[in-house]
Design a protein around this nucleic acid. Sequence first.
DNA 1: TGCTAATAACTGACCGGTCAGTTATTAAGA
DNA 2: TCTTAATAACTGACCGGTCAGTTATTAGCA
Lengths: 214, 214
Amino acid sequence: MQPGPPKFQRRKEDRPGEIALAALAVFSEKGFAAAKLDEIARRAGVSKGALYLYYETKEDIFHAVVKTAVAPDVAVLRARLEGFPGSFEELLAIFLPALAGILSVSPVAGIGKMVISEGRNFPELARYWHDELVAPMIGLVSGLIARAQERGEVRLGDPRLFAVQLVSPFLMALLWRETFVPVGAEPLGLSTLAAQHLAVMKGGLLTPANGSGS
Amino acid sequence: MQPGPPKFQRRKEDRPGEIALAALAVFSEKGFAAAKLDEIARRAGVSKGALYLYYETKEDIFHAVVKTAVAPDVAVLRARLEGFPGSFEELLAIFLPALAGILSVSPVAGIGKMVISEGRNFPELARYWHDELVAPMIGLVSGLIARAQERGEVRLGDPRLFAVQLVSPFLMALLWRETFVPVGAEPLGLSTLAAQHLAVMKGGLLTPANGSGS
DNA sequence: TGCTAATAACTGACCGGTCAGTTATTAAGA
DNA sequence: TCTTAATAACTGACCGGTCAGTTATTAGCA
């Protein structure tokens, strides 16, 4: 009887991370409900039963995915914004291209789309995402806008809605890419969009003293 | 044996419309995959089997929903845009609030979110929606922008991306309402958003000769 | 160093519930 | 009476979660 290659190895340390990585891919591609645990297990190189050695439920796996794959990107963006020293116009010139860059690369895109897709049927997912990521980011950006308004750099208006105006084109570009490009639509150029959006926001959001002078 | 009220009535003419109406509600609430035919049938006041007297498959029912519930709204908007006589600035002042109004009321919102949600797993849905509604509308708006650019009313840049900038805040507001408001987030005021977005777009999208003068 | 007992990481067949779609049957309506 | 709209019971595929059994790995002992 040849021993042959072993059927599996015991790698307790690595499994959770590998499972979360595989789950990120499958969740991004299929969405939460349509993601099959069998496929996550297959891609992670383990059996389905092994998933339950490290995680309680499917939702538990999702939370792990968010923590390991999304939170770091957000933390970086957050740190960059919080400590920014320059004017609001300079902040915009940094922030918009940075956002475009992150969305091009980071798994935030796929997971974010998933939350939108499945939020209705899995409220825990929506609540977690909102409380942990969306609300703090919107609050941060709104605060920056409010302070710029006090300094007279930004026109009057609801800072929260200005924040929506700032980020929404990128959200739409992301959804466009995930939804319509696969069925033949022309992609939206993220970097061009960032540049163009920056120009328009400078002209429309900043007060004349600041906005026209660049 | 009392005859009692009849167990059902034969209403061949009305059934398809009633089923489509019930399906619209269920699809909007649950999304395509999670919408159960049993529930659609129950709300339409028929048995599940009756659905199959009038429609071939679940996807077939969805196509009926789009045709009967969404297309009319889009046609109205389209007609209003195509025949608009005034300047681009005047067009904006009509178009943005009109868009906000339609999204507040029409089932386009729910169905649109559904297409985004399920597009990945049901490409037919995404293709149909894109080809029938999204692409024509984007093309129409882009065309209007391009003509305004030729007249010198709008700044230079990719008209398609300008169109994205114009409509994306409303898309985001809609997704916000459907995704995060149910789990406790503060709603975004659609009409305030329209007014604020109009002001910013006037300042940033129109050329100085046109934009500053209102 | 080699042999064996003990441990626990891992497997994969299975179960219960769900749901799109089917069909045998009934009864409304002309 | 006859046609057919409509019902209600049914089928079969699918999938999250379980668990009895298997095997890689380590510890104990000579």
